[in-house]
Write a protein that binds this DNA or RNA. Structure first.
Length: 430
RNA sequence: GCGAUCGUGGCGAAGUGGUUAACGCACCGGAUUGUGGUUCCGGCAUGCGUGGGUUCAAUUCCCACCGGUCGCCCCA
């Protein structure tokens, strides 16, 4: 057997890459409108960054990281997410010193997590993410969510659900944590094995357990929203007010918890309602992470961001049968007959390409008919034919593939003729 | 990491413990010495994920591994 791509990775082939390019262009354009600038960070980092940034107790750090020792005996990890790297770069390059704050950044690139692959979950996957560092204005929380929603909406998705929650500040979280432990402790034996561990480690996670969802204690569990202190409560209320003002529909889910340790205050997810989606419906996740910049050695700087999976975005587009008008292919095809003509065809094709014309030719030494078949399959607008007859007269035949009409054009006029013809088509809306 | 299920040409898909592994699509050639479609004719898997085992004989039975899919866990 020949060597295969490693488990959980995939090749993106022509036909699919056009879709990716289309989506990337759309997102880049959107970021420009929202004034977020691109940042590119390394694909691998010191392992310590993720242990400190993502959190030592998270599943990502504990069992999903691609970690190895390099030749210099350093522990290196392929990045499992983007926020830690962006914050590290923010601190290291002292972007907090820039006169324009908040610092609004976006990134695009592969992430790596060692998990059991299934649809919508690859070991290497591509995330688009956004971070706004340096503002604790609830309006920026709303802006971040509006940007995330815009990505999906502008690509034509309809079945979307924005779910938000507040995790509160440290004080609120500690109070809630205590209340949760007190609430569930009497029922500990009735909970699933995972939750028994969670109860002491991270009781918040018990709330979104799928197994114990029906347990009576779940319905009466203390909600984080009841434990928000005044400041946190007001903050959350303001975020909702801004969303209302912008006309962005959402629902509050008091059980929404995110898996990364660094989140506080605003947490949100965007999910797909579309049919044909399996167990994985979360398209995008994000939230506020005040304190993370300090944890990574920077000055006190609030932050908020989100990340979305491009693979899942494309799955959603597929599920809703959204057609992307990605443009690919060429406008012209050069058909030649005989060695002499081939020589001239090679030269002319190059000339046309240098003049900006999209054109291809045959490299299989195929018959005229077969070359035309290929041209037809490529949906070209014009076929240029060069045979013995044309060669003698220093001209080519240019065939309009739609009308079927054919015209003789002098070699020296071919470039201008084609440019004119293609421009004409464009104006006609072809 | 756990459970289930699947793996036959470029794609879809039949099939059987035993001579040349159906069929459809796609592709290539010809009928048509220089023009796209249709039709007709012909071609196209020395091999049935990989490696072992059982057997006189395995694509078919057994085992392991690899990979896909679905669910759980978790997440994007």
């Amino acid at each position: 057997m020949t060597v295969q791509a490693p488990r959980g990775t995939q090749d993106l082939l022509p036909g699919t890459t056009e879709k990716w390019q289309f989506v990337e262009r759309k997102i880049t354009d959107l970021c420009r409108r929202f004034n977020y600038q691109e940042i590119r960070t390394p694909i691998f980092e010191h392992t310590e960054l993720f242990q400190r940034g993502v959190g030592d107790t998270t599943d990502i750090v504990q069992r999903e990281m691609y970690t190895f020792t390099d030749r210099g005996d350093r522990s290196i990890t392929l990045r499992p997410e983007g926020t830690a790297s962006v914050v590290r770069a923010f601190v290291q390059n002292k972007l907090y010193g820039s006169p324009t704050q908040p610092t609004k950044l976006y990134y695009f690139g592969p992430m790596f997590r060692y998990e059991r692959p299934q649809q919508g979950r690859m070991r290497q996957f591509v995330q688009f993410g956004v971070e706004a560092l340096g503002s604790k204005d609830p309006a920026i929380d709303a802006e971040i969510m509006s940007l995330a929603m815009s990505v999906y909406q502008e690509l034509g998705l309809k079945s979307l659900k924005l779910v938000i929650n507040s995790l509160g500040d440290t004080e609120s979280r500690n109070n809630h944590r205590e209340a949760l432990i007190n609430h569930f402790e009497p029922h500990k034996e009735e909970l699933c094995a995972d939750c028994q561990v969670r109860l002491t480690k991270n009781p918040l996670r018990v709330l979104d357990c799928k197994k114990d969802r029906e347990h009576p204690a779940m319905a009466t569990a203390p909600s984080i929203l009841e434990y928000l202190n005044e400041e946190s409560g007001e903050y959350f209320q303001k975020v909702q007010n801004y969303l209302d003002h912008m006309g962005i529909p959402y629902e509050v889910d008091k059980n929404l918890v995110r898996g990364l340790d660094y989140y506080n205050h605003t947490a949100f997810e965007i999910m797909s309602d579309a049919d044909g989606f399996g167990a994985i419906t979360t398209l995008c996740g994000g939230g506020r992470y005040n304190g993370l910049v300090e944890d990574l050695g920077g000055p006190e700087t609030p932050g908020i961001g989100f990340a979305l999976s491009v693979e899942r975005l494309l799955m959603a587009l597929d599920a809703e049968a959204v057609a992307l008008n990605e443009n690919s292919g060429v406008d012209c095809y050069f058909v030649s007959l005989g060695d002499k003509a081939q020589e001239e065809a090679v030269r002319l094709t190059y000339e046309l390409r240098k003049a900006g014309i999209q054109i291809d030719k045959d490299y299989q030494e195929r018959k005229l008919k077969a070359q035309f078949k290929t041209a037809d399959r490529l949906h070209v607008k014009y076929v240029i034919v060069l045979g013995e007859n044309e060669l003698e007269n220093n001209q080519v035949s240019v065939k309009d593939m739609e009308s079927g009409e054919q015209q003789e054009v002098a070699l020296c006029e071919l470039v201008t003729y084609l440019i004119k013809a293609l421009q004409g088509d464009k104006q006609d809306g072809k």
